[in-house]
């Protein structure tokens, strides 16, 4: 028995447990579901993992909009597979979250009541086919930058889910870029469509990486727990630096007059982000917040009888088996 466990003084004991816990994380040990953890660690992880899961589930809606209207069978199977992956990613993440002692029903309830958030980017509309390209290229690109460091996070089930998610995500971005490239090599009207999509998705994609470090209330604690390995501003800079040359290959213009290469820093300088817009969308006033929630809650409610019927059938089969066993 360790010294910490032998100490009977309640306050000192819990402090020591916490010190041991922080030490384990500092040593890059993983925390598993049944290990002791501070309540704040549990709560923060429930918040972040569930928000991530909800984003995958709501993220299916803007793209689902275009499945039936994909321009070719090749594009249609790819989009279907991508949306199906997103459902899968949501499920990996929900089950990782449930290991922290919250039920799936509670998680859904938090999403449906608006208590839990999802990524604000999915509150923008997908009005042309080029939006499927821009989402794959930019939104999945930003998501990958966010997610790769999480493969190394301290909570075992989350890290394992993220490894699987990242493995599957890279096709998402490539299929998006291919859509953009095809449009850019097409007619003038098609190229314009691609430019218009970039114009609309560029700034929301930058916002997707979260508030600036000065405004981000959770960053410090999350860095300590390795729930975050890089700050929002670092991730954003990385995203811009790698995306600008890709836009050059497409022959598209990033909609930021202040964007320019800075020889000294070795990074791109960029213009002011409209954070008022970001907070408006987070608070529920984006172009599609209502539509997304209605679609999600409606699907859940209309599915009730299916879930109940499946459960009733399972019980009936079980009873039948038991009765046969008794009779036999």
């Amino acid at each position: 028995m360790s010294e910490a466990q032998q100490n009977n003084n309640g306050a000192e004991r819990s402090l020591s447990l916490e010190e041991i816990f922080e030490q384990r994380i500092a040593n890059d040990e993983k925390i598993e579901p049944k290990d002791w953890m501070p309540e704040k660690y549990r709560k923060t992880h429930i918040r972040q993992i569930s928000q991530h899961a909800h984003s995958e589930i709501i993220g299916m809606l803007p793209e689902g909009n275009w499945i039936t209207r994909a321009p070719s069978l090749r594009r249609k199977v790819a989009l279907l597979a991508k949306v199906q992956d997103e459902a899968g990613h949501g499920l990996y993440l929900y089950s990782a979250c449930e290991t922290l002692g919250i039920s799936r029903e509670e998680l859904y309830e938090q999403l449906h009541s608006g208590k839990a958030k999802y990524s604000s980017i999915f509150n923008y509309p997908t009005i042309t086919w080029a939006d499927m390209g821009a989402i794959g290229w930019l939104v999945d690109g930003a998501a990958i930058i966010n997610q790769v460091p999480l493969c190394n996070t301290s909570y075992g089930p989350y890290a394992r889910a993220m490894i699987r998610v990242c493995k599957e995500e890279s096709f998402h971005q490539r299929q998006g870029f291919e859509i953009m490239l095809t449009l850019c090599n097409g007619t003038e009207a098609q190229k314009q469509m691609a430019q218009d999509a970039l114009n609309r998705w560029w700034w929301p994609s930058l916002m997707m990486l979260g508030p600036t470090d000065a405004e981000s209330i959770h960053t410090e604690q999350s860095m300590k727990w390795k729930l975050k390995r890089k700050t929002n501003d670092d991730l954003r800079q990385q995203f811009i630096d790698q995306t600008v040359p890709q836009a050059d290959i497409l022959g598209l213009t990033i909609p930021d007059p202040d964007l320019k290469w800075n020889e000294e820093t070795g990074h791109y300088d960029f213009g002011e982000i409209d954070w008022d817009e970001f907070w408006q969308v987070v608070k529920g006033h984006g172009p599609c917040n209502k539509e997304r929630m209605n679609a999600r809650v409606g699907a859940w409610e209309r599915g009730t009888w299916v879930r109940d019927a499946a459960m009733a059938y399972a019980e009936k089969q079980q009873n039948k088996k038991e009765n046969q066993a008794k009779a036999g």
């Binding site: 990782a96 394992r160 879930r307 059938y313 399972a314």
Partner: peptide, 8 residues
């Protein structure tokens, strides 16, 4: 590999 919910 992970877990999931199902009726049976």
């Amino acid at each position: 590999f992970g877990s999931l919910h199902a009726a049976d």
